[in-house]
Design a protein around this nucleic acid. Structure first.
Length: 350
DNA sequence: AATTCGGGGCA
DNA sequence: TGCCCAGAATT
């Protein structure tokens, strides 16, 4: 046990702060409107929560507007081809989310008559909806009195309780402590606590003088809240190296292909390339041609650093199979992750 | 319980 | 540069 008799969070103070300082977000119903009985659209809340998994509000905003413009309801999204969803998701990262998003939309339409389940337990049975997202949707849309614990809350609670171990080792204790504090206005409370973490109890700086729960915060009382949360030792990031091949036909079109549906950048579009390994393999061109070295692209993934040598050549297209030729002007609409947009840029395209 | 999944913003 | 972000699925 790392928390002995954890003090409750003063929910009324948190809600009073939220009533005055709630951020204006495209998927949010403001607390005043919520008090008048206006309910958030579960489809929009779900879509926003999936996009926000490990992704900042600033990045999500434009994607959210685009998605809801193209697909205003869960029926529209479920009816859309997966390809078009992947194309619109391109650049947002964690592409398994896009596949699960589409699968979830179809499950809601086909197995739940287009209505999202109204409990966290029911929501969590759907693809791409885990402990956090199920609780968030249930609280925000249906005011289920459930603890909504995200990365912001990890930090806020670690400071509030001066947690002396990494959060991972006390996750369920923090959840129980938060659960005990959840008020009737569960949705507003959840969003308030996340806003508080994002704007006041920030990672590098804590504006404790503005914080509605400062009176109960142990880390503040100790004097240095940013000492928490305690960080686990970090593993170093390995390097992988490889080659990428940009092939152009006589018309100047580019050869593209699809990646396998599972694993890194699953189902997304790429240009052909070598395997990626710790040591750079000798280059083996996929076709005959006047190959030119166009430089190196460096791309940082969560768990490794990738260095790709970019080659380009004009080729005879006949012998290629499995992919397709794309006009340079049409590259913007392809399901190209950022890595391969960098590769194409290095070859003089995009 | 630990690892595998992207990418951008910020100090 | 390193850290963090409204985490989930897989192993």
């Amino acid at each position: 046990m790392h928390l002995s008799d954890p003090a409750l969070i003063d929910a009324p103070s948190v809600l009073a702060w939220y009533d005055r300082h709630a951020r204006d977000l495209p998927w949010r119903v403001a607390p005043a409107a919520r008090a008048k009985g206006e309910h958030p659209d579960p489809y929009r809340v779900w879509l926003s929560e999936v996009m926000l998994q490990q992704t900042t509000v600033a990045t999500v905003r434009s994607y959210f507007v685009r998605f809801t413009s193209l697909w205003p309801t869960v029926f529209d999204l479920a009816a859309a081809p997966l390809d078009s969803v992947l194309k619109e998701w391109a650049g947002l990262g964690y592409y398994a989310r896009a596949r699960n998003l589409h699968a979830c939309a179809q499950a809601v339409v086909n197995e739940h008559a287009g209505q999202f389940p109204q409990t966290s337990a029911g929501l969590q049975t759907l693809p791409g909806i885990g402990a956090y997202t199920s609780a968030a949707i249930a609280a925000i849309c249906f005011d289920e009195q459930v603890a909504v614990l995200d990365g912001n809350l990890d930090r806020v609670l670690a400071r509030y309780y001066a947690l002396d171990v990494p959060v991972r080792e006390a996750k369920e204790e923090l959840r129980a402590a938060l659960q005990a504090s959840v008020p009737q206005r569960a949705g507003d409370f959840a969003q308030a606590m996340m806003d508080l973490g994002a704007t006041i109890c920030a990672p590098r700086a804590a504006a404790c003088m503005l914080c509605p729960i400062q009176p109960g915060c142990i880390a503040t009382r100790q004097g240095e809240p940013t000492l928490y949360p305690i960080k686990p030792a970090k593993a170093e990031r390995p390097v992988r190296k490889g080659h990428a091949f940009v092939m152009l036909d006589a018309a100047g079109d580019v050869y593209l292909q699809s990646r396998p549906t599972k694993g890194l950048l699953g189902g997304m579009t790429e240009v052909p390339g070598s395997d990626w390994a710790a040591e750079l393999v000798e280059v083996t061109y996929p076709m005959d041609g006047e190959w030119q070295h166009r430089g190196q692209v460096v791309h940082i993934f969560t768990h490794f650093r990738l260095e790709l040598e970019v080659w380009s050549a004009a080729v005879e297209p006949d012998a290629l199979e499995g992919g397709w030729w794309a006009e340079p002007a049409a590259l913007k609409g392809e399901a190209l992750p950022t890595l391969f947009r960098k590769v194409l840029a290095a070859a003089g395209l995009e």
